[in-house]
Computed example of a mutant assay.
Amino acid sequence: MKLEQHILRMLTGPCRVSEGAGIVVAVSGGPDSMALLHLLATVSKPLQLQLTVVWLDHKLRPLETPQEKETVALAAEKLNIPFLPRQADVAAFAQAQHFSIEHAARELRYALLREVARDCGAELIAVGHTADDQAEEVLLRLLRGSGRKGLAGMNMRSGGDLIRPLLRTGKHELLDWLARHDIAYCFDSSNNDRKFLRNRVRHELLPFLREHFEPGIRNSLLKTADSLAADEELLEELTAKAAQQVLEEEGNGEADAFPKLRLLREPFRTLPLALQRRVIELLLWRIGSKANYEQILLVMEAALSGRNQSELHLSQGLRVGVFAKWLEFSYPAGRKAWRGRLLALTQHGL
C-alpha cells in the first residue's frame, strides 16, 4: 500500500478526521514533520481539509532555527498553505516553572498550537510522532515506572483535538518517501544531545537491545502498546462506571473554586484492586491534584483501613479527612501549602 493511501486510512479511521476539518499542522522542519505536512497536503483534496502550518522557535538553537524557518515557509508557500511562525522562550519558562527543558518545550508547544487552532477555527492539531517515537515512548515510560495506561503509549487521537497520523509509520519509510519526492528537510542537532533521556534511549538503549536481545524490539514494543491500548478502552469504561458509584461531589461546580469530593468507603472496598487504583487516580485529577503512585497508595490504604477522624496531607494544600463512611478531599486554605489540621474535623463523620 502506498504511504499516501495508508495516511488517508489513518485520518478517516483511528484519527477520526471529518470531511472539511480544519487542521493546524505542527512543522519543525525535521523529516517527520515535513513528511507529515506534504502527506496531509497530498490527501487534503479528497477530504477537503483546511490546513494551517505552525512553526515554533523555542529560542534554544539560534544558529539552526533561521534555516528551519525558511525551509518550512518555502514548503508552505509551494503547497499554498498559510504559514504562521511563532516564538516561545522555553528556557525562561523552564526556569520559572522548575521544569526540564523537554517538559517546558512540550507544555509551551501544545499551548501555542491550541491557541492558534482557536484563533483560526481549526478543530484539530496534527503532530509528526512516528512508530519509532512510540517505541521510544513505551521504553521511557517503563523506565519511569508507568502503569498499564502509560505503557499503552501515545494514541492516534488524544485530548479531543490532537492527531498523530504517522504513529504507525516507521521513520525509515518517511525518509524513503521524502527522498523519492525530493523534499528538503533540516536536522535538529539537539536530537543527538545525550543529556536528554529520550536521546539516550534512541541512540544507546534501543540499539543495545536490538543487537544483544531482540532484533525486532521496535515491533515488540509497538505490539505491547497496541495490546494495552485495547485493554485501556475497556478499563476506562469500567472506571467511569465505578466512579459514579463511589464518588460524590459537594459545592457548586464551577462556581465553587475549591469543591469537595467524597470517596464512599464501603462500595470502594468491593471494587477490584485495578479499579480502586484507577478511581483514586481519577479523583485526584478531578480535584486538581497530582496523581502519583505514592499518593494513590496512601489514599487506598486510608480508604481500606484508615482510622476514623484521621487525615492525610497531600500536595498543594489538599487534605483528606478520613471518616467512618467516606474520605473527604478538600482544600481548606485554597491550593497552597499550609500547616495545621482540618477545621472542625469532629463535626463530620459518624
Rank of each mutant, 00 (worst) to 15 (best):
L113S: 06
A122C: 15
H129I: 01
N80Q: 14
L143N: 14
H98N: 13
S100W: 12
A111C: 07
L166W: 05
D133I: 00
T42N: 14
P165H: 09
E70I: 05
A122V: 02
S100L: 15
T65P: 05
S146H: 03
C120K: 05
T52A: 02
T42P: 00
G170M: 08
F93N: 00
G170Y: 15
V72I: 09
N80K: 13
A94P: 02
A105D: 12
L84D: 00
Q95S: 06
E107K: 13
A75Q: 10
Q50H: 12
F99Y: 11
P82C: 07
Q67L: 14
R141K: 09
K149V: 07
E123H: 08
L140W: 01
A92K: 15
L60F: 06
A35Y: 02
V138N: 00
A41F: 06
I81S: 12
G147C: 07
D132H: 10
H103M: 12
I125R: 03
I163E: 06
Q97W: 00
A105H: 09
A111R: 15
Q95T: 08
P85I: 03
D161Q: 14
H103I: 06
E68Y: 02
L112M: 06
Q48N: 11
D119N: 12
W55C: 11
E64Q: 14
L140A: 13
M156R: 07
L162I: 07
H129K: 11
Q50I: 05
H103E: 15
G121C: 07
A152G: 15
M156T: 15
E64A: 10
A117T: 03
G159M: 10
A88G: 02
E107V: 14
I101M: 06
E136L: 03
H38Q: 09
V138H: 01
Q134C: 03
A91D: 04
P46N: 01
I81W: 11
G121K: 03
M34S: 08
A105V: 05
E107P: 02
L151N: 13
E137P: 00
I101H: 05
L79D: 09
L108F: 00
P62S: 15
G147T: 05
E123D: 04
E123F: 03
A152I: 06
L124I: 04
I125S: 03
Q48D: 06
V43E: 09
A135Y: 00
F83R: 04
V127K: 13
L56M: 15
R61H: 12
E68I: 07
S146G: 09
E64V: 11
L37W: 01
A73N: 07
L60V: 06
A35C: 10
T42K: 06
H58M: 07
T71G: 01
H38S: 04
Q95W: 04
L39C: 12
R148I: 13
L37S: 01
I125C: 08
K59S: 13
P85Y: 01
K149D: 14
V138W: 01
D133A: 01
W55T: 13
L79E: 04
L39N: 04
T169L: 08
L49E: 04
A75W: 02
